[in-house]
Every structure is written in C-alpha cells, then in structure tokens.
C-alpha cells in the first residue's frame, strides 16, 4: 500500500473512531447518570451537580423506593402483566406464523400487509375505544384488561418477527414425521418448535421488553396505585410536591436496567428480523 493511501485510511479511521466515541458517550450518558445519581447522597447532588462520581456511595435512595414507596409491588405488577402478555402472544403468534408459512403461504403477503397496517394504527386511536370497551367489560384497574390490550401490539409484531424464523424450518423433517403418523400439532410441538426455539426466545424477550415499557394504555386503564405498572407510578411520583431526583433515579434504574440487559442479549436476532420482515 502506498503512503498517501495509508495516511488517508488512517485519517478516515480516526474520524470514524472519534465520531463513534462521541455518539457512544451521548448514547450511554443517561444510563450512567441514572445509576450515578441513584447512589449519590442528596447533599452532593445539590452542592456539586456536575461531579461525575459520588464521593460517598449510598443505597438510601433504593431503600426509600423499596420500603416507603413499595415499588416492589409495582414492579411485580409490571412483571405479571408483561409476563402474561409474552406467554399469550408468543403462543398465538407462533401458531399463527407457522400456520401462515405452512398452510396458507399464498396469504403470506396479504397478512404481512395487514400487520404493517395495524402497526401504523396510532396507539391513541385504540386508546379511545379501549377505555370504553374495557370499562364495559368491567376490567378497568385490572391486570387482565391491560394484558388484553397489550396483545393488540404484541401479537402482530411477534407474528411478523416469527414468520422469518419459521421459514427456515426444512419441510423434509416435517414430512418424515407425518409419514411416521404424527398429526399437525405433534409435528409443530415436537419437530418445528425445537428448531425455532432460539428465535422464539428472542421474540419472547422482545415482547416482554415492549410490554414492560408500555405507557399509554396503562395510563388510561389503571388509576389505583396498587395496580399501577412501573411507568405510571414513576409518572405519579413526578407529580408529587417535593420531587426527590435521587429517589426518582433509583426507581428509574430498577426499571431500565433489566430492559437494557435483556435487549443486549437479543439485539442481533431481532434486528435482522426487522429488516427481513420489512421487505418480505
């Protein structure tokens, strides 16, 4: 390689690294600042707001969040709602995605378009009828009501992601099982599911994160604090007269850290599926 070319690649390399480093700092800073603020003492946050690292570590904020605000029960609500949403949607979506891929392939394109169209429905559009219908069903302030409304966005999305995974299952394996006398449900559970398990787990985690992160439907459907999910309780914390940012950041840390960790575990699988789903 000649010298000028070497210099040029050195230059573009350093520009790339510099750019990525700046972006990485901006991307990571809020998470870092949440954690650092959560373990700082109250006095230090006020006297020296720009000090990056705390002089003294404290878990007082977490103690307030857990013992006084009983945040644990709200976390549990969110886990229950997101967990049930995930289980129900993954079952429905796995059956549906497999059914379309295997039995109704001609409808694949139509279905993808219906799903994309529902993806375009504004959540606020559904919020109005949901508040009326859930009220009629007597499910206001219930976790079941919330799970049902969450299916509206989690099922279509899960189908969309899963179709790509089911397409990779070789037909010959299924045919061999049919020859051995297995029925469709047996083939699905015993042959197909084991092959796509990694994909299904990724989709399940993604569904869980999305349900965990949801805000609007729980805002309109839940108003008693013992049924509130984490998002709504944080919002109501903000409305209190004396706002304690240390406590707020401690609670935020408890909400966001699981999301970030799980997301990092599955991001490679989901990203490919997103791009693939959008063109097929």
């Amino acid at each position: 390689m000649n010298k000028s070319k070497l210099n040029r690649s050195l230059l573009t390399d350093s520009i790339s690294y510099l750019y990525l480093t700046i972006l990485a700092v901006i991307a990571a800073f809020p998470l870092l600042w949440i954690i650092l603020s959560a373990v700082k003492e109250k006095g230090e946050m006020i006297t020296n707001p720009t000090a990056l690292f705390p002089k003294k570590l404290t878990l007082d904020n977490f103690r307030v969040v857990i013992e006084q605000l009983h945040f644990g029960s709200n976390m549990l609500n969110s886990v229950i709602v997101a967990g049930c949403t995930t289980i129900v949607s993954v079952i429905i979506a796995a059956l549906g995605a497999y059914g379309v891929v295997r039995f109704f392939p001609r409808f694949g394109k139509v279905m993808t378009r219906v799903l994309i169209t529902t993806y375009m429905f504004p959540p606020i559009l559904l919020a109005v009828p949901y508040s009326i219908l859930v009220g009629k069903a007597g499910l206001v302030n219930s976790r079941i009501g919330l799970v049902i409304t969450y299916l509206s966005f989690s099922v279509p999305y899960a189908i969309w992601l899963l179709v790509g995974f089911f397409k990779t299952v070789p037909l010959e394996m299924e045919e061999a099982a049919y020859v051995d006398g297995a029925n469709r449900l047996q083939v699905f559970i015993q042959i197909v599911m084991p092959i796509v398990t990694p994909g299904v787990i990724a989709v399940a985690i993604y569904t869980f994160i999305n349900a965990w992160n949801e805000f609007l439907y729980s805002l309109i459907l839940i108003n008693s604090s013992n049924k509130m999910t984490v998002g709504i309780i944080l919002k109501s914390l903000e409305g209190q007269e004396v706002m304690d940012w240390g406590v707020m950041m401690a609670a935020s840390a408890m909400v966001v850290i699981p999301s970030v960790i799980f997301f990092m575990l599955i991001q490679k699988k989901i990203a490919g599926g997103l791009a693939a789903g959008s063109i097929k």
């Binding site: 990485a24 991307a27 809020p30 998470l31 998002g231 919002k235 966001v256 799980f262 997301f263 990092m264």
Partner: peptide
C-alpha cells in the same frame, strides 16, 4: 453501547 437508547422505556427517557 450505541443501541442502549433503544431499550429505554419512554418514562425513563423522559425522567433521565
């Protein structure tokens, strides 16, 4: 590092 923001719930984006 760069994908961290994607995982943030809207409430935590707002509060942080």
């Amino acid at each position: 590092i760069l994908i961290i923001p994607w995982a943030f719930p809207s409430i935590v984006i707002a509060m942080s």
